Amino acid sequence: MNANIHPMAIIHEGAQVHPSVTVGPYSIIGPNVSIGAGTRIGPHCVIEGYTTIGVDNHIFQFASLGAQPQDKKYAGEHTQLVIGDRNTIREFCTFNTGTSQDSGVTRVGNDNWIMAYVHVAHDCVVGDQTILANNATLAGHVHVGDWVILGGLTGVHQFVKIGAHAMAGFASRVSQDVPPFMLIEGNPLAVRGFNIEGLRRRGFTPERLKAVKQMHRLLYRQGLSLEAAQQAIAALVPEMPEARQDIALMQSFLDSSTRGIAR
């Protein structure tokens, strides 16, 4: 018996668990699970389904990872949950596998801080460096970009996309796409500004902050149609070359939005 595996844990034959993985008492690891080096799993966790977990994650007690999707159309297809590296997953989190109606994979990236009772439903894609506070809930097919922060009790409607560096305040009801960098809050949802403090902490230069501020103005403060705002945002590139990638990020997001953006 591996000294890192508590004798009261159940590791099914076929599970691929690195010798350095720690598993607490009464946790159950299913036969189709793969867990990378240095990952710590607390007591009373259930990790099942076709689930792949990377290195150096910390999964706290009572988490349920890899259960079948909460979708009535699911008929036992081979779908997956893939979790990256260095994530913190707190108590009572529930992450489900994907469905055949989408890519078949629910995916969580790297270096995420995921607090208690967070639900990540089928076919969600969560990027890197996000913070999902207590009871944040992602319905099916939601995409969350890098560096996003979701306040506690925030609910995100199925198929919504939240752009990189956006931030949602406590108990927000998110039913439309949220462009990158924006600061949102409330029920009904409103865009309150842009995430200037978060961007400063991530090293955005004054010129990049100026570009984000101008994109916010064009989308939300000048009474422009969305089409006119998109044209004006595209025209910022020659004026603000240092922010070229930030502008391209906004353009790509707006072009790909299918639910319409929060305005």
Rank of each mutant, 00 (worst) to 15 (best):
K73T: 10
T94I: 07
I47N: 01
G36D: 10
N135E: 04
G42A: 12
Q80H: 15
N32S: 11
T94G: 02
F60I: 03
V105G: 04
T137M: 08
C45Q: 13
G98A: 08
H12N: 12
G38D: 10
R40G: 02
Q70S: 05
I41M: 09
S34P: 05
D123L: 04
A15P: 08
T97S: 08
L132M: 14
T88R: 13
E77N: 01
N112A: 03
H12T: 01
Q129D: 12
N110Q: 13
I35P: 08
N134Y: 01
Q101G: 14
T88P: 02
S100L: 14
R40Y: 07
N96W: 07
V105W: 04
N135F: 12
C45W: 12
G30Y: 13
H122N: 02
N96Y: 10
Q16C: 03
N96T: 10
I53T: 12
I35S: 09
L65R: 01
R90F: 09
G151H: 04
T52W: 13
M115N: 09
Q61S: 15
D146G: 07
M8P: 00
V46M: 15
G49H: 08
Q70C: 05
V21C: 12
A37F: 03
H122I: 02
D111Y: 15
I131H: 08
S34W: 07
L138T: 00
G84Q: 01
A133I: 13
T51W: 12
T97G: 05
A67K: 14
G127F: 03
G54C: 10
L150C: 01
V23H: 04
S100I: 13
G66S: 07
E13I: 05
G66L: 06
L81S: 00
V82S: 11
I41Q: 05
T106I: 07
A121H: 09
W147N: 14
E77D: 11
G36F: 11
L65K: 01
G145D: 06
G84P: 05
E48A: 09
D146I: 02
T97C: 11
N57E: 05
P69I: 09
L132G: 00
I28D: 03
D102Q: 10
G54K: 08
D128P: 03
G36M: 09
P19R: 00
G66E: 11
A75I: 04
G84W: 08
